[in-house]
Write a protein that binds this DNA or RNA. Structure first.
Length: 641
DNA sequence: GCCGTTTTCGGCCCGACTGTTTTCAGTCG
């Protein structure tokens, strides 16, 4: 039901709606620019609530959020930029870790042994985990209204300028800033002038409404559109979309187009001709930024052929990956920039760069640094350099490795197609087996199945299998709810007749971590459950994960031989990349499923694959790359009978 | 604030673009 509802609330629609509302209202009825402040304030108060000692375990993501907030506020105060960077590095490290920091602290492990975490950050994390709050942060919050953070989102305003506005004019909200610009007060400050005022007024509405990242799937649609448009530009020799899009990140904040051309102006003019381009933010000789009608920013960069690989490497990122790459280069006496790799010794005298030793392709750039070419999905400065060091880069899973899809719905509940239609769609996608997993009775809004209706459906599955013969297999499955009070929504004797039982949480998502974790552990211990579907319940950009202690879930899944799902719905991608990597490190097989509610829904498998690649998963790590008979052997004994 | 195959102190990735300047700071990616 939830997945079905999602089809209607894509980001573009939400944005269009917001825009439409804004435009339709008279100017004096415009929604307050401070809406975002209150959202920020809510977020921070949520953080504060989450930090309360009543909460048992602080998650890595909460700790990372807190460190980021600390960095934001310190930066605003004019703190040493290397210090704030250290906090952000610490935050990123923690966010990327597969083990829970709270567990490490509970086990009396030394956090400073983690790369990038020193005495100070370790101490802060320990305090946060043990007490739920951080005195230094509380103090900062009293000194600086957090609404100033919204001002930092205005393009062109960074910590220095925002601090000047706050210190000189007492501006701490977007509304105050707008008033001051209109009264021409801002131009009186040093470093500001009329043009800046104008830019602020233009950027202020953008800051109030934008900042939302779009799903990778939506970004992909825009990329396809732009690619087709740009392909007709004769001046382009090579073109790639770089950035987080190329890395397959679950959400994308902007698009980066990299072009190899001798005529940058022609390429820029061509992009501007696209009907979606709403305005030009900056335009230089080789670089242009435009805003699309959907408010998404697109950066275009034009480089010569001999630099295309270096530029592609550079603009693909991530930033953190590049920091490591450049640091490594430096140690080797080399300089890496977006134009190539250079020997750096000769740059002092002639003012130019040293001898260029690479740049045309990414491969030769990495080779010059004695590194293998990294698949973009791995370029997050997580494990990739470690793997490269030991010559152990994983051979990442591909869409064509997938043989079965084990989570989908039909007209029996909230799906749009019949079993036979789902079979046809699966066969068109070269799959060999599927599991029909409609909702169980608790999901009444989706007309969930009771034991009678479920057994009736299984009779139909038998009929379909008879028709299909050996060429394709339909499994008798169920997506059985884990009840609020614990326990499964269908009796064991029914579940025992299934080939494949997904257990999932749809209700009681607000419960405490202990309650939710206990419910999931109960499901894992049920002998008939084969996998946990969308294990954290998060909806990207819309709903936080429910509170669940995944350390315990991983241990239990490992012990009882259960699988964990990577739900490929682009709004879910649950488990995410970090947790998929954690599951792998616990030896738990992942099953990537589409949760299709109609035949076209099976196309989302590609998004799950991208996420799995980001986790460093190989075909062997993913259960449904196997044939069904092979896969059955991985399941607890009773299903294999 | 973090870190060490030059370093326990002195570095910390690098360049484009803009606006406000009159040689550069701030911002961005």
């Amino acid at each position: 039901m939830i997945a079905l509802a999602l089809h209607g609330v894509g980001h573009a629609q939400a944005t269009d709606k917001r825009l439409g509302q804004s435009l339709a209202l008279p100017r004096n009825k415009l929604p307050s620019l401070d809406t975002r402040h209150s959202q920020l304030a809510t977020r921070h108060s949520q953080l504060a609530t989450r930090n309360s000692p009543l909460r048992k375990k602080m998650t890595n993501s909460q700790l990372a959020d807190t460190l980021d907030l600390l960095a934001d506020l310190l930066e605003f105060q004019g703190a040493n930029s290397f210090r704030t960077r250290a906090y952000r590095n610490g935050s990123r490290t923690i966010r990327n870790m597969t083990e829970s920091l709270a567990t490490l602290v509970a086990d009396s492990k030394d956090l400073t042994e983690i790369d990038g975490i020193g005495k100070s950050v370790a101490g802060k994390c320990q305090t946060l985990i043990e007490t739920g709050s951080l005195p230094q942060l509380e103090e900062l919050k009293e000194q600086i209204p957090q609404s100033v953070l919204a001002i930092l989102r205005i393009p062109g305003l960074g910590p220095k300028k925002a601090a000047a506005l706050y210190n000189e004019l007492g501006i701490s909200t977007l509304d105050q800033l707008k008033e001051a610009c209109e009264a021409e007060k801002v131009r009186e400050l040093k470093g500001f002038a009329a043009k800046t005022e104008k830019a602020i007024l233009e950027g202020i509405q953008f800051a109030a409404s934008a900042g939302q990242r779009i799903y990778w799937s939506k970004a992909n649609e825009l990329v396809e559109e732009l690619r087709e448009h740009m392909n007709s530009c004769k001046a382009i020799k090579q073109m790639e979309f770089a950035g987080s899009y190329r890395r397959g990140k679950e959400s994308v904040g902007d698009l980066d187009i990299l072009v190899d051309s001798k005529d940058a102006n022609k390429v820029m003019d061509h992009l501007v001709e696209h009907s979606r381009v709403a305005d030009i933010m900056v335009r230089g000789e080789t670089k242009m930024s435009v805003r699309l009608d959907s408010e998404l920013q697109v950066d275009l960069r034009v480089v010569p052929e001999e630099s295309f690989g270096a530029a592609l490497q550079y603009f693909t990122g991530s930033k953190e990956h590049n920091v490591v790459v450049r640091g490594r280069a430096k140690k080797m006496g080399l300089l890496v920039n977006e134009y190539g790799v250079y020997r750096s010794e000769s740059d002092a005298e002639d003012g130019g760069l040293g001898e260029s030793i690479a740049g045309a392709t990414e491969k030769e750039v990495y080779e010059a640094l004695e590194l293998p070419w990294f698949p973009p999905e791995l370029r997050e400065a997580r494990k990739e350099f470690e793997w490269a060091e030991s010559d152990d880069l994983p051979e990442l899973i591909q869409l064509s490795d997938i043989r079965g899809d084990l989570h989908m719905h039909t007209t029996a509940t909230d799906g749009k197609n019949s079993i036979r239609e789902m079979v046809d769609a699966a066969r068109k996608r070269k799959l060999k087996y599927i599991a029909i997993t409609d909702h169980s009775q608790r999901v009444s809004m989706a007309f969930g199945l009771d034991p009678d209706r479920l057994r009736q459906q299984w009779t139909e599955v038998d009929e379909v299998n008879d028709e299909l013969g050996k060429s394709f297999t339909v499994l008798k499955g169920i997506e059985c709810d884990i009840l609020e009070a614990g326990g499964m929504d269908l009796p064991d004797d029914v579940l025992a007749e299934a080939d494949w039982v997904l257990a999932s949480i749809h209700y009681g998502q607000k419960q405490s971590m202990q309650q939710i974790t206990d419910r999931i552990l109960g499901a894992i211990e049920n002998p008939y459950v084969t996998a946990i579907a969308h294990p954290t319940g998060r909806i990207i950009n819309k709903r936080e994960s429910y509170a669940v202690d995944l350390d315990q879930v991983f241990k239990a899944a490992r012990k009882h031989g259960k699988l964990l799902e990577l739900n490929a719905n682009p709004a879910r991608l649950d488990l995410n990349d970090i947790y998929c990597a954690a599951a792998k490190s616990h030896g738990i097989p992942i099953v990537i499923n589409t949760d299709a509610h109609h035949t076209g829904g099976m196309d989302v498998m590609q998004f799950g694959i991208l996420q799995a690649r980001r986790a460093g998963l190989t075909a062997a790590d993913v259960a449904n790359t196997r044939t069904w008979p092979q896969m059955k052997k991985m399941l607890p004994a009773r299903v294999a009978t």
